[in-house]
Protein backbone atom coordinates (compact mmCIF):
# COMPACT_ATOMS: atom_id res chain seq x y z
CA UNK A 1 0.00 0.00 0.00
CA UNK A 2 2.61 2.44 1.12
CA UNK A 3 4.88 1.84 -1.81
CA UNK A 4 2.30 1.54 -4.51
CA UNK A 5 3.59 4.56 -6.41
CA UNK A 6 3.48 2.75 -9.69
CA UNK A 7 -0.12 1.65 -9.30
CA UNK A 8 -1.40 4.92 -7.83
CA UNK A 9 -3.23 5.96 -10.95
CA UNK A 10 -6.46 3.97 -10.83
CA UNK A 11 -7.27 4.79 -7.15
CA UNK A 12 -6.57 8.49 -7.74
CA UNK A 13 -8.85 8.47 -10.76
CA UNK A 14 -11.65 6.79 -8.86
CA UNK A 15 -11.19 9.23 -5.97
CA UNK A 16 -11.48 12.09 -8.43
CA UNK A 17 -14.59 10.56 -9.91
CA UNK A 18 -16.12 10.22 -6.46
CA UNK A 19 -15.26 13.81 -5.63
CA UNK A 20 -16.88 15.07 -8.81
CA UNK A 21 -19.91 12.87 -8.20
CA UNK A 22 -20.40 14.23 -4.67
CA UNK A 23 -19.88 17.76 -5.91
CA UNK A 24 -22.54 17.21 -8.55
CA UNK A 25 -24.97 15.86 -5.98
CA UNK A 26 -24.35 18.92 -3.81
CA UNK A 27 -24.92 21.23 -6.77
CA UNK A 28 -28.16 19.51 -7.74
CA UNK A 29 -29.42 19.73 -4.17
CA UNK A 30 -28.50 23.37 -3.66
CA UNK A 31 -29.73 24.18 -7.16
CA UNK A 32 -33.19 22.76 -6.59
CA UNK A 33 -33.58 23.55 -2.89
CA UNK A 34 -34.53 27.25 -3.32
CA UNK A 35 -37.34 26.39 -5.71
CA UNK A 36 -38.65 23.68 -3.36
CA UNK A 37 -38.43 26.08 -0.43
CA UNK A 38 -40.27 28.80 -2.35
CA UNK A 39 -42.96 26.39 -3.57
CA UNK A 40 -43.57 25.17 -0.04
CA UNK A 41 -43.65 28.80 1.10
CA UNK A 42 -46.27 29.69 -1.49
CA UNK A 43 -48.36 26.65 -0.55
CA UNK A 44 -48.21 27.53 3.13
CA UNK A 45 -48.57 31.26 2.61
CA UNK A 46 -45.30 31.70 4.45
CA UNK A 47 -43.43 34.06 2.14
CA UNK A 48 -44.37 37.24 3.95
CA UNK A 49 -46.48 40.22 2.98
CA UNK A 50 -45.14 40.39 -0.57
CA UNK A 51 -44.52 36.80 -1.72
CA UNK A 52 -43.84 37.77 -5.33
CA UNK A 53 -41.10 40.12 -4.22
CA UNK A 54 -39.68 37.34 -2.02
CA UNK A 55 -39.59 34.94 -4.97
CA UNK A 56 -37.84 37.49 -7.17
CA UNK A 57 -35.30 38.37 -4.48
CA UNK A 58 -34.48 34.77 -3.60
CA UNK A 59 -34.20 33.65 -7.22
CA UNK A 60 -32.12 36.71 -8.12
CA UNK A 61 -29.68 35.95 -5.33
CA UNK A 62 -29.35 32.31 -6.38
CA UNK A 63 -28.75 33.35 -9.97
CA UNK A 64 -25.82 35.43 -8.77
CA UNK A 65 -24.53 32.66 -6.53
CA UNK A 66 -24.44 30.24 -9.44
CA UNK A 67 -23.03 32.80 -11.86
CA UNK A 68 -20.20 33.57 -9.45
CA UNK A 69 -19.66 29.86 -8.76
CA UNK A 70 -19.37 29.26 -12.50
CA UNK A 71 -16.89 32.09 -12.79
CA UNK A 72 -14.92 30.64 -9.89
CA UNK A 73 -14.22 27.32 -11.61
CA UNK A 74 -11.23 28.38 -13.68
CA UNK A 75 -9.57 30.44 -10.92
CA UNK A 76 -10.06 27.50 -8.56
CA UNK A 77 -8.47 25.19 -11.09
CA UNK A 78 -5.43 27.40 -11.36
CA UNK A 79 -4.99 28.47 -7.76
CA UNK A 80 -5.85 25.18 -6.06
CA UNK A 81 -4.46 23.05 -8.89
CA UNK A 82 -7.77 21.25 -8.81
CA UNK A 83 -8.41 20.26 -12.38
CA UNK A 84 -11.41 18.05 -11.78
CA UNK A 85 -13.57 21.00 -10.80
CA UNK A 86 -13.99 21.88 -14.46
CA UNK A 87 -16.31 18.89 -14.76
CA UNK A 88 -19.03 20.69 -12.79
CA UNK A 89 -18.79 23.98 -14.66
CA UNK A 90 -21.56 23.20 -17.12
CA UNK A 91 -23.91 22.15 -14.32
CA UNK A 92 -23.19 25.36 -12.38
CA UNK A 93 -23.76 27.45 -15.48
CA UNK A 94 -27.02 25.70 -16.28
CA UNK A 95 -28.29 26.27 -12.76
CA UNK A 96 -27.39 29.97 -13.10
CA UNK A 97 -29.53 30.03 -16.24
CA UNK A 98 -32.30 28.07 -14.49
CA UNK A 99 -32.52 30.53 -11.60
CA UNK A 100 -32.28 33.52 -13.94
CA UNK A 101 -35.23 32.07 -15.86
CA UNK A 102 -37.32 31.52 -12.75
CA UNK A 103 -36.41 35.03 -11.57
CA UNK A 104 -37.50 36.50 -14.91
CA UNK A 105 -40.70 34.43 -15.07
CA UNK A 106 -41.62 35.55 -11.55
CA UNK A 107 -41.16 39.14 -12.70
CA UNK A 108 -42.88 38.84 -16.07
CA UNK A 109 -45.60 36.39 -15.08
CA UNK A 110 -46.42 36.94 -11.43
CA UNK A 111 -45.41 40.56 -10.91
CA UNK A 112 -46.41 41.97 -14.32
CA UNK A 113 -49.05 39.36 -15.33
CA UNK A 114 -47.32 39.25 -18.75
CA UNK A 115 -48.39 42.84 -19.49
CA UNK A 116 -46.04 43.29 -22.44
CA UNK A 117 -46.30 47.07 -22.65
CA UNK A 118 -45.16 47.47 -19.04
CA UNK A 119 -42.44 44.87 -19.38
CA UNK A 120 -41.14 46.58 -22.51
CA UNK A 121 -41.20 49.95 -20.77
CA UNK A 122 -39.22 48.49 -17.89
CA UNK A 123 -36.65 46.82 -20.14
CA UNK A 124 -36.15 49.94 -22.23
CA UNK A 125 -36.37 52.68 -19.63
CA UNK A 126 -35.07 51.33 -16.36
CA UNK A 127 -31.39 50.64 -16.47
CA UNK A 128 -31.37 47.97 -13.78
CA UNK A 129 -33.98 46.00 -15.69
CA UNK A 130 -32.17 46.62 -18.97
CA UNK A 131 -29.01 45.17 -17.43
CA UNK A 132 -30.79 42.21 -15.88
CA UNK A 133 -32.66 41.40 -19.07
CA UNK A 134 -29.48 41.67 -21.16
CA UNK A 135 -27.75 39.31 -18.75
CA UNK A 136 -30.52 36.73 -19.17
CA UNK A 137 -30.51 37.09 -22.96
CA UNK A 138 -26.75 36.49 -23.05
CA UNK A 139 -27.17 33.32 -21.02
CA UNK A 140 -29.61 31.79 -23.52
CA UNK A 141 -27.08 30.90 -26.28
CA UNK A 142 -24.69 29.64 -23.61
CA UNK A 143 -27.31 27.27 -22.21
CA UNK A 144 -28.33 26.12 -25.70
CA UNK A 145 -24.76 25.38 -26.78
CA UNK A 146 -23.79 23.65 -23.58
CA UNK A 147 -24.30 20.16 -25.02
CA UNK A 148 -21.49 17.92 -26.26
CA UNK A 149 -22.85 18.12 -29.78
CA UNK A 150 -22.66 21.90 -29.88
CA UNK A 151 -19.22 21.94 -28.29
CA UNK A 152 -18.00 19.65 -31.09
CA UNK A 153 -19.81 21.53 -33.82
CA UNK A 154 -18.57 24.94 -32.76
CA UNK A 155 -14.99 23.88 -32.10
CA UNK A 156 -12.80 26.88 -31.36
CA UNK A 157 -15.73 29.27 -31.68
CA UNK A 158 -17.37 27.63 -28.65
CA UNK A 159 -14.74 29.07 -26.31
CA UNK A 160 -15.12 32.50 -27.81
CA UNK A 161 -18.91 32.34 -27.57
CA UNK A 162 -18.79 31.25 -23.96
CA UNK A 163 -16.77 34.30 -22.99
CA UNK A 164 -20.22 35.95 -23.02
CA UNK A 165 -20.50 34.51 -19.52
CA UNK A 166 -18.23 37.32 -18.30
CA UNK A 167 -20.55 39.93 -19.73
CA UNK A 168 -23.59 38.16 -18.31
CA UNK A 169 -22.00 38.10 -14.86
CA UNK A 170 -21.01 41.76 -14.98
CA UNK A 171 -24.50 42.74 -16.13
CA UNK A 172 -26.06 40.59 -13.40
CA UNK A 173 -24.06 42.32 -10.68
CA UNK A 174 -24.85 45.71 -12.20
CA UNK A 175 -28.54 44.80 -12.19
CA UNK A 176 -28.30 44.03 -8.47
CA UNK A 177 -26.35 47.19 -7.68
CA UNK A 178 -28.73 49.49 -9.53
CA UNK A 179 -31.75 47.84 -7.98
CA UNK A 180 -31.04 48.49 -4.32
CA UNK A 181 -32.00 51.72 -2.62
CA UNK A 182 -29.58 52.00 0.25
CA UNK A 183 -28.32 48.55 1.18
CA UNK A 184 -25.33 48.31 -1.12
CA UNK A 185 -23.53 45.72 1.02
CA UNK A 186 -24.38 42.60 -0.99
CA UNK A 187 -24.14 44.23 -4.41
CA UNK A 188 -20.70 45.58 -3.52
CA UNK A 189 -19.60 42.23 -2.14
CA UNK A 190 -20.73 40.48 -5.34
CA UNK A 191 -18.94 43.09 -7.41
CA UNK A 192 -15.73 42.59 -5.42
CA UNK A 193 -15.96 38.81 -5.76
CA UNK A 194 -16.55 39.02 -9.47
CA UNK A 195 -13.69 41.50 -9.88
CA UNK A 196 -11.39 39.16 -7.97
CA UNK A 197 -12.42 36.16 -10.08
CA UNK A 198 -11.96 38.07 -13.32
CA UNK A 199 -8.66 39.41 -11.98
CA UNK A 200 -7.29 35.90 -11.48
CA UNK A 201 -8.25 35.01 -15.04
CA UNK A 202 -6.67 38.18 -16.40
CA UNK A 203 -3.49 37.44 -14.48
CA UNK A 204 -3.16 33.93 -15.89
CA UNK A 205 -4.08 35.06 -19.36
CA UNK A 206 -1.36 37.70 -19.23
CA UNK A 207 1.16 35.19 -17.89
CA UNK A 208 0.31 32.80 -20.68
CA UNK A 209 0.77 35.51 -23.28
CA UNK A 210 4.17 36.40 -21.84
CA UNK A 211 5.28 32.77 -21.87
CA UNK A 212 4.24 32.02 -25.40
CA UNK A 213 4.21 35.18 -27.48
CA UNK A 214 2.16 34.61 -30.58
CA UNK A 215 3.92 34.94 -33.87
CA UNK A 216 1.57 36.09 -36.50
Amino acid sequence: MRRSTTSSRPPAASRDARQVFLLKVAIWLSGLAPVCWLSAGVARGALGANPIETIMLVEGRWTLVFLLATMAVTPLRRLAKWNQVVKVRRLLGLFAFFHASVHFLAYAGLDQSFALAYILEDVLERRYITAGFASLVLLIPLAVTSTKGWIRRLGKRWRRLHRLAYAAAVLGVLHFFWKVKADTFWPLLSALLLAALLGVRAYYAAAKRRKAPRVA
Binding site: A49, N50, P51, D111, Y118, E121, E125, R126, W178, K179
Partner: peptide
Protein backbone atom coordinates in the same frame (compact mmCIF):
# COMPACT_ATOMS: atom_id res chain seq x y z
CA UNK B 1 -44.64 60.53 -12.90
CA UNK B 2 -42.47 57.43 -12.89
CA UNK B 3 -39.77 56.71 -10.41
CA UNK B 4 -36.50 56.09 -12.28
CA UNK B 5 -36.49 52.48 -11.11
CA UNK B 6 -40.14 51.59 -11.41
CA UNK B 7 -43.35 52.70 -13.02
CA UNK B 8 -45.88 54.37 -10.73
CA UNK B 9 -48.78 53.62 -13.08
CA UNK B 10 -49.82 50.51 -11.18
CA UNK B 11 -49.47 49.16 -7.68
CA UNK B 12 -49.60 45.83 -5.93
CA UNK B 13 -52.14 45.72 -3.09
CA UNK B 14 -50.62 43.44 -0.47
CA UNK B 15 -52.43 40.43 0.89
CA UNK B 16 -54.24 39.51 -2.33
CA UNK B 17 -52.30 36.37 -3.14
CA UNK B 18 -49.63 35.39 -5.57
CA UNK B 19 -51.81 35.42 -8.68
CA UNK B 20 -53.41 38.82 -8.06
CA UNK B 21 -52.76 41.47 -10.67
CA UNK B 22 -51.49 44.94 -10.04
Amino acid sequence: VSHPRWSQARERPLGKGILARR
